[in-house]
């Protein structure tokens, strides 16, 4: 289902959280709304779901204006950051809830409902723990239950509000890969809100970068990473350094630094403030002589002389850029 977002404005008291948002989500696509906290991404998601009303603008599902459609009738699946599972119901009852709430005329038989709920639990690999209660599950399990519960009512759209935000790093990585795979299988139009650029990059087909209530850039992960439209997008997508060279400020990533132990043409002299092994690279914090800002450099472990690199040592560096300085 195509979702069109047209000229959405939203105010909280005198604070405008969304400025004239225009966006189209294609059918079957998994799109990320990425931005720092307070950028309006969650408000936009809640407006799409119908949990909040925009002050102006239109949300269209498949061309149809959703104004006046209650949350209940929008056929939207929603996954909350803090799961929002029904704490007094078993996992199975949680998943079956939406099916049981349907009007009697269109409600399935109890057996069919249970069968369907069990099938969904199998899909999220939790069929063994259907009779447990939410507080007996790990965070990752809870979120999978929440997803199964949202999918049970066969929504036309799936909205995920920082779904992995409350989980630890390892479970998070596992779950987002699993989610990307699941999306490939079911191809449900989905919007994924996150503040974690790595997550958005890894899971989504298209990314919308938001900041202070406006859209900064829309594009595929590769597009926005390789061609950031402005400094905000560039900085938001990863750690960055900035250095003033010849009156011009250049931005570069920590891995775009060349380090030398002897002076070379175009290299800047710096003192090493800190050295940390980070796996494939070593992270060094460099302070150019006579300046108070620092440069973060990720130096490949194969670099000669790296093993003896120490704090306080003098080195030379230059950004690796497409142009000569």
């Amino acid at each position: 289902m195509i979702i069109q977002i047209e000229n959405i404005n939203k105010w909280y008291d005198r604070f405008q959280v969304l400025h004239d948002i225009n966006l189209q989500i294609e059918s079957g696509e998994l799109m990320a709304l990425l931005g720092p906290s307070g950028c309006g991404k969650t408000s936009l998601l809640r407006i799409i779901a119908g949990l909040e009303k925009p002050d102006s603008g239109t949300i269209r599902f498949q061309g149809q204006d959703m104004k006046g459609y209650d949350v209940r009738n929008r056929k939207v699946g929603f996954v909350f950051q803090h799961y929002a599972l029904f704490r007094h119901m078993t996992v199975l009852d949680n998943v079956a809830f939406g099916l049981r709430m349907k009007p009697r005329k269109i409600r399935l038989s109890e057996n069919t409902i249970l069968e369907k709920a069990r099938y969904l639990l199998e899909m999220v690999q939790l069929d063994k723990i259907g009779n447990r209660y939410p507080d007996e599950l790990s965070g990752g399990q809870r979120q999978r239950v929440a997803l199964a519960r949202a999918l049970a009512v066969e929504p036309k759209v799936l909205l995920l509000d920082e779904p992995f935000g409350a989980l630890d790093a390892k479970v998070r990585r596992e779950l987002r890969r699993w989610l990307a795979k699941l999306h490939e299988e079911i191809h449900l139009t989905s919007i994924f809100v996150t503040h974690d650029q790595e997550e958005a990059m890894e899971v989504c087909d298209r990314i919308v970068i938001m900041n202070k209530g406006i859209i900064e850039q829309i594009g595929s992960p590769a597009e926005i990473y390789n061609h950031p439209r402005n400094e905000f997008v560039y900085n938001f997508l990863g750690d960055s350094n900035s250095l003033s060279v010849g009156g011009k400020t250049v931005n570069f990533r920590p891995y775009e630094v060349s380090v030398s132990f002897e002076t070379k043409k175009g290299y800047t002299e710096a003192v090493v403030l800190d050295v940390r092994p980070m796996g494939a690279v070593t992270r060094a914090i460099l302070q150019p002589i006579g300046n108070d800002y620092t440069i973060e450099a990720h130096i490949p472990n194969m670099t000669l002389g790296l093993k003896t690199l120490n704090k306080g040592q003098k080195v030379y560096f230059r950004p690796i850029l497409d142009f000569e300085i």
């Binding site: 779901a49 949990l51 949350v71 209940r72 939207v76 699946g77 929603f78 909350f80 803090h82 929002a84 599972l85 029904f86 704490r87 809830f97 939406g98 709430m101 349907k102 929440a146 519960r149 949202a150 049970a152 009512v153």
Partner: peptide, 13 residues
């Protein structure tokens, strides 16, 4: 209100 919101999204009146 999240559980209530979740229930509403799942179609409960």
């Amino acid at each position: 209100t999240q559980e209530e919101e979740a229930a509403r999204l799942l179609g409960a009146n």
